[in-house]
Amino acid sequence: MAKVVVVTSGKGGVGKTTSTAALGAALAQSGERIAVVDFDVGLRNLDLIMGAERRVVFDMINVIQGEARLTQALIRDKRMENLMLLPASQTRDKDALTGEGVARVIAELRESFDWVLCDSPAGIERGAQLAMHHADIAVVVTNPEVSSVRDSDRIIGMLDSKTERAERGQRIERHLLLTRYDQARADRGDMLKVEDVLEILSIPLLGIIPESQEVLRASNVGTPVTLHAPVSAPARAYSDAVRRLRGESVEMSIPSDKVGIVARLFGRRVA
C-alpha cells in the first residue's frame, strides 16, 4: 500500500525542496519505488535540486489536462532507477491544478509506487492545500526561528482540518523535521532549542538536520544531499529520519560534520 507524504512548512526557504529530494533519495536506497512530486506551479525547483532540469518534457498539469500520460511525464533519476520525479509546470497558470486532477494523479501514483512525496509550495493557499490534501503523513519542515515556527503551527492546524483524512474524521500522521539547526548557537541561547520547538508545536520529532555547508554543495551539483555526501551530517540526519518514517525506532541524535579522519575513511557513522 503506497504512502503519500507531504513535505510542507507554510514559510518559504526553510528546506522543503531540499528535504523532499534528500528523503526521496534515502527512501529509494531500500529498493522501494519512490515518486517525488513538485506542487510548486510556476516556481518549480525540485527538478533543479534533483539535477533533472534539462530532462523535463511534460509536467503534472500536462497530465491533468490529458496532454501527456503520467508515465511520459515521470522522469527517472539518473542515479537510482527506482526514484522518479513528477515536475510542476513552470509556465502554466496555477488554476490549471484542479482538485479533481490532483486526485487522479495521486491515485495513479499510489498504484505504481510505494512512497509518493509531495513537495508543497510555500504559503497556505490553494497550492499548499492541494499538496497536503491526499497525504497520509505530513513532514512539517521548520527552522528554529520564530516566523518559521509560527507558520508551521498554522500549517499543522490546516493538516488537522483541510486534508482528506481530516475530512473523513481520520488523523493524519504529522512529524516535525527541524532543519538548519545549530547546536552551538542553541547552547549559547541564541537559537530556539529542539525542546522549545517541540514543546510549542507538540508533534513528534522525525529528525534534526544540522546546518551544514554540504546542503548548498549538493544543490550546486543537482544531487540530493543524501547521495552527494552520504556520510555528511545532514545526510546521516536525513537517513535516520527516513528510518523513523518507516517506523523503525532510531535514537534521536544531531549528527556532526566533525568526523574523525579514520571514521571518514571507513565511512563509519559517527553520531
Binding site: E145, V146, R150, D153, G157, G189, D190, M191, D196, I200
Partner: peptide, 23 residues
C-alpha cells in the same frame, strides 16, 4: 540578562495560544 532564545520561546507561546484560539 537573558538569552534571546528564551524571549523567542515566550513570544511564540503567547502568540500561538491566541492564534490557535482565534481560528
Amino acid at each position: 540578562k537573558r538569552p534571546t532564545a528564551d524571549l523567542a520561546r515566550e513570544r511564540l507561546q503567547i502568540l500561538l495560544s491566541h492564534e490557535r484560539a482565534s481560528v
